[in-house]
Write a protein that binds this DNA or RNA. Sequence first.
DNA 1: ACTCTTTCGGGAACAGTGTTCGCGAACAAT
DNA 2: ATTGTTCGCGAACACTGTTCCCGAAAGAGT
Lengths: 219, 219
Amino acid sequence: METVPVWLRERRTGVGRPAERSRAEVTAAAIALADREGLAAVSMRRVAAELGTGPASLYRYVDSRDDLLDLMTDEMATEYRLPEPGGPWLPALLEVYRQGRAVMLRHPWLPELLLTRSALGPHSTELLEHVLAILAAHPAGAGRKLEAFAVMTTLTAALTLNELNASSGAPQRQGAYLAHAIAAGRHPHLTAALAGGPPTPAPRFEDTVSRVLTGLLGE
Amino acid sequence: METVPVWLRERRTGVGRPAERSRAEVTAAAIALADREGLAAVSMRRVAAELGTGPASLYRYVDSRDDLLDLMTDEMATEYRLPEPGGPWLPALLEVYRQGRAVMLRHPWLPELLLTRSALGPHSTELLEHVLAILAAHPAGAGRKLEAFAVMTTLTAALTLNELNASSGAPQRQGAYLAHAIAAGRHPHLTAALAGGPPTPAPRFEDTVSRVLTGLLGE
DNA sequence: ACTCTTTCGGGAACAGTGTTCGCGAACAAT
DNA sequence: ATTGTTCGCGAACACTGTTCCCGAAAGAGT
């Protein structure tokens, strides 16, 4: 029962044969592979091949595939370019999540990882610290602020995942059954909602985010 | 490229040798197995063993494991016991997601499936119809209502998943690094937020949900 | 210069996975 | 009884994450 997260499991250096690669290198290779061929392609063998080594070598840098996924996720938090906290909190937080969406669009495998595992690494912690700084003057309690951070991460991932699914082949799969359900005629409200072809103007990302933010943190 | 969802791929009956089992039976076996041993235990071989057959037989009822997971997910929508729509929308929706959480606590494998795949089957569609009925008098556009449904499903799943992880061995994993980050001293706001031991009173599920709901749908 | 100790690299193997093939059996219709 | 069609499913294929283990490589101590 290993309860220590990856980031606290540093190897001691200076003794024995030096490593030919680094944890960062392995992470970068996995990210490149995921960007190119999707998360399903990130197997230990494929990542190893990416680095020109055998699969067993990766276990010198990472304890398991799950560890590697956590490292990939946390690494994404380095792509934010955030201005110094200051000014009203709402536009500042909006900028944070706008950038979050941009990162996820660049790395389409990210939302799934963010939604299914809840690993807080060093870089994600930096991001949390930044959000808390933005909210420093906000009167809400610490519990509500932490909750807002968690909910907004989830919300951003969920909205972006929807966007990504919509722009790939998925709508046929999803829409096919809905069309059938409407044709069957037993869903009056659904029929009414989808009357005008596609789901009618989908709300803009920033619009939804700022609505939920004001809901979570008040005014 | 098969874009037709499972639910529209019914087999024709009355010709040839009759099937010994049914799609519903296979789904039920998979659900029972997932309830008992978790989602990872739901392999084609284990499900087949549950039914006393060989793994290849399952492919008479289901095109792939993904199909089976979609069937399991949609089946969960039958566990809702919802009152007739009527009255103010907020408490009515709150009841929907309170029940959603209850279903997920009963079937701890559900959140992960809801978060990673977005399959709308017959029973989920019934639930969507119910939510739209609750919102029938609401002035928001159809796009916003549909988005609210998608977002709330995801959010409920994410929150419940967090709850489930927190009540198992996971909090150590998450808390361990946070403690380390605070000890390092470079995160003043984070340190302040976590000053009083645990994250201060964690907001209740219904509280969070109703805040997000009013954010999404106004009022 | 030599050993000692420690770590790294990675081939081979294990236990498992999803899925396909193909054949014999079982039924409905003719 | 024959034909058409479906079902059951053993066997096999190409993968997966992970562990074992051994030889190689480097620094430390003498």
